[in-house]
């Protein structure tokens, strides 16, 4: 009996070890590679043995990588702010005011969040050309609304529905206009949900690839995922893996930090929205 329980414990911790190892190893290996340069890269190593920052230096000195990071930060931030502004009032209506067609509207919002991006790509391309936004960061800010807005509305609506009706009854009786109710009663309560959805929307916008690949055409305008995808050498045999890994680590570290810090919030947001971030 005793032996059996020890064996069981050992098996459990072994499984735990495998789970953790597979989760962190690829990122660990990317960091390891990013710290090697020259020929050292082509020897397979499992443990760090050199500490060479030249890949990081060249990432920032050659080309426009620094600029591309700023592009990504700008796009993701503006997308989050705009979708919050639009979503807070919209979800108040959907969550707190009974009116005809509400269920249908919510269904529409939910189905837009499942839209395959490719289905709107050619139409969106036309709209963006018409508005003169091609190769402008605003083309991304505009097009990213297709996934951040429904997601934000959905999660905030779910959250607001759970609040008891008493909290706004007094305000309604006092004849406060709805906008005042949203600002004075709900906004202070909404912060936790807004932090969660904002984070998820930020991560989604930061990672987006298809629109960024299609609507931007010059290097200095690109966001980081496209920049990394397009790093190439003069031939297939000269792919600068060290530089690619350094750039990858740079754009991923802030995300990993965010996820580790806000772990609980992110998990609750994912389960509330059941939408992939």
């Amino acid at each position: 009996m005793k032996v059996q329980s020890y064996l069981r414990k050992a098996a459990f911790y072994l499984l735990l070890g495998v789970i953790v190892l597979q989760a962190v190893f690829p990122f660990y290996y990317a960091i390891l590679t990013s710290l090697e340069s020259g020929q050292a890269i082509f020897d397979v190593n499992y443990l760090p043995h050199v500490f060479d920052l030249s890949n990081y230096k060249s990432a920032f000195t050659n080309g426009v990588f620094g600029h591309q990071i700023l592009n990504s930060i700008f796009v993701a931030t503006v997308v989050v702010v705009l979708s919050m502004l639009l979503a807070v009032t919209a979800s108040y209506s959907l969550a707190r005011i009974p009116f005809k067609g509400r269920a249908l509207l919510l269904l529409t919002v939910l189905s837009v969040s499942m839209f395959p991006q490719i289905a709107v790509l050619s139409g969106l391309f036309e709209v963006i050309r018409m508005m003169g936004l091609f190769n402008s960061l605003w083309s991304l800010i505009f097009s990213y609304m297709i996934f951040t807005l429904p997601f934000t509305v959905w999660v905030l609506t779910t959250f607001m529905r759970k609040l008891p009706s008493e909290i706004e009854e007094a305000a309604i009786m006092d004849g406060a206009p709805p906008l005042v109710i949203v600002r004075r009663v709900f906004l202070p309560l909404l912060w936790p949900a807004m932090v969660t959805t904002g984070l998820l929307a930020f991560i989604h916008a930061w990672n987006e690839f298809l629109f960024a690949l299609t609507f931007l055409s010059t290097d200095s305008q690109r966001t980081v995922p496209v920049a990394i995808a397009l790093i190439s050498g003069r031939s297939e045999f000269e792919i600068p893996w060290g530089n690619i890994m350094a750039a990858s680590v740079i754009v991923t570290l802030p995300l990993v930090a965010l996820v580790l810090i806000f772990q609980r919030k992110i998990v609750s947001g994912l389960t509330a929205g059941a939408v992939k971030g």
Binding site: A23, F27, T33, P225, V259
Partner: peptide, 22 residues
């Protein structure tokens, strides 16, 4: 452990593809 498990989810898809490509 739960935080460690979340790491792959936090890594941008393009970066994941590059990391695995390597």
């Amino acid at each position: 452990v739960r935080a460690a498990v979340l790491i792959p989810w936090a890594i941008p898809t393009v970066v994941s593809a590059k990391m695995w490509g390597w």
